[in-house]
Write a protein that binds this DNA or RNA. Structure first.
Lengths: 243, 243
DNA sequence: CGGTATTTTGAGCAGTGTCAAAGACGGTGG
DNA sequence: CCACCGTCTTTGACACTGCTCAAAATACCG
């Protein structure tokens, strides 16, 4: 694959911040090591001391933490181009787990190299900062989703967000997308049970807002779905930031 | 008040990252404007274009967003020393609201001055970055709380977190603390209704895990409460980060 | 083809929400 | 100092969303 390089990272960072050709070149020259993870395996474990920061080039992952009783909550989804461990760039010990959702290819860059680069090139540091800020914004929306929407709107919102993000990364076919997770994992992301997720999906389907074939999702009435859950992509900050 | 200066910010940033005396001095010399907000008034509004970043020196605030239907969700609490708008430092448009919980005194620093300083002094930039990372970690825990704990554990966890944060800022009396919010606001923070928050508080009280007098909270059995909800402060990253 | 994971369905239950109203409390003006 | 008013807390009765447990149907994989 000619694409297995840091190009994806450059493109991702470039969508939020303006990078000079030199900045881009410097990013491309970062040292890294390519690794593959099987579905379910851990990229980061809580209490670990991460020393690298991975960038997903293929496949999907998710962040997750659990209560003392053992119930799990997925707190975010990572798609190709996402930086897995910017969240721990300057933190010594990991506060949550990251697991592969599907088989995933990851380029792992030493944290130290990233820090050095962002000290040397403020524009790069700024791009990384923005990346973290956007993720924080997505957490806020996730809290709103889990805290204040009922099951139907909650499921709808997750599907809309995923669609918008895939779209922004140029990963969505014209015809919906392949949802890379089981209903049980959706339940963990939504603070529901898998049984209820199933019922809710069929409800949306019955309402003509959703069509499924295995895990392939289509939106026969995108406007309707979007409208139902009040999805508004502005919290994703998809445009390039000025300042 | 002799304390109305950026000293608090220095102290806060200094708890996470090592700052040189020169770094500290540079922070203290940042330009700012002091403002007071009444309880309920907005420090930041969604869709605004913030150009300053406030630091709370007295009082409390919260971040909040609402669904299309108008139900509100509080996504974080801000205590003295917290930077209100680091979350938008490099973002053009605000994605959520910040409101004063009580009357609050805020020092507002121009974003541009902060950016310039963090470009000039990487250690300061790093401290700000850490600040944002820690807030992201708190969001993740908040999602877990709202998504996967029942009402009793959820309330308990909020009280524990608040206690731990006040304590870390040296703001907790030896004898519990004054909770600066109504039960309705707690409900908005927890994804519950105020009626149920009330019942849950009395349940905790009846169980001897909590004592209340107006809004003053005491913990007759701190270990029990902490243990009940599995509170573990490590996600607050209270220690100074090494690298 | 058998074995495992996932999806689907049903029935009954529990935890929270809704609605409504009655206390407390704190502040205000007379 | 007291009556009044708005906000907040507390309580009750009842409805309903989403959970539990269990099993069947289906898909996936070696």
């Amino acid at each position: 694959m000619s694409e297995v390089c840091l190009d994806l990272l450059v493109r991702k960072l470039g969508t939020h911040a303006l990078l000079s050709p030199e900045d881009e070149q410097a990013i491309l020259e970062l040292p890294y090591e390519a690794r593959s993870y099987n579905a379910g395996s851990y990229l980061v474990r809580e209490h670990d001391f991460p020393i690298v920061c991975g960038v997903i080039v293929q496949g999907y992952a998710f962040r997750q933490k659990a209560t003392a009783e053992g119930t799990r909550q997925i707190v975010s989804l990572q798609i190709p181009g996402d930086a897995v461990d910017l969240q721990h760039l300057h933190l010594d010990v990991a506060d949550h787990n990251v697991q592969a959702l599907t088989r995933a290819d990851v380029l792992e860059i030493p944290k130290a190299a990233i820090v050095a680069l962002s000290d040397a090139r403020p524009a790069v540091g700024r791009a990384l900062f923005i990346n973290v800020l956007v993720e924080a914004s997505m957490y806020r929306e996730w809290i709103l989703n889990v805290g204040r929407r009922d099951a139907r709107l909650r499921v709808a919102h997750l599907l809309c967000e995923f669609a918008a993000r895939l779209d922004a990364q140029g990963l969505s076919g014209s015809d919906g997308y392949e949802l890379p997770m089981s209903q049980e994992q959706m339940a963990d992301a939504l603070g529901l049970t898998s049984v209820h997720v199933n019922r809710t999906l069929r409800l949306l389907e019955a309402g003509g807002l959703l069509a499924r074939n295995k895990r392939h999702i289509r939106f026969p009435d995108w406007a309707g779905l979007r409208n139902l859950c009040g999805f508004n992509a502005s919290y994703l900050h998809l445009e390039r930031q000025s300042g």
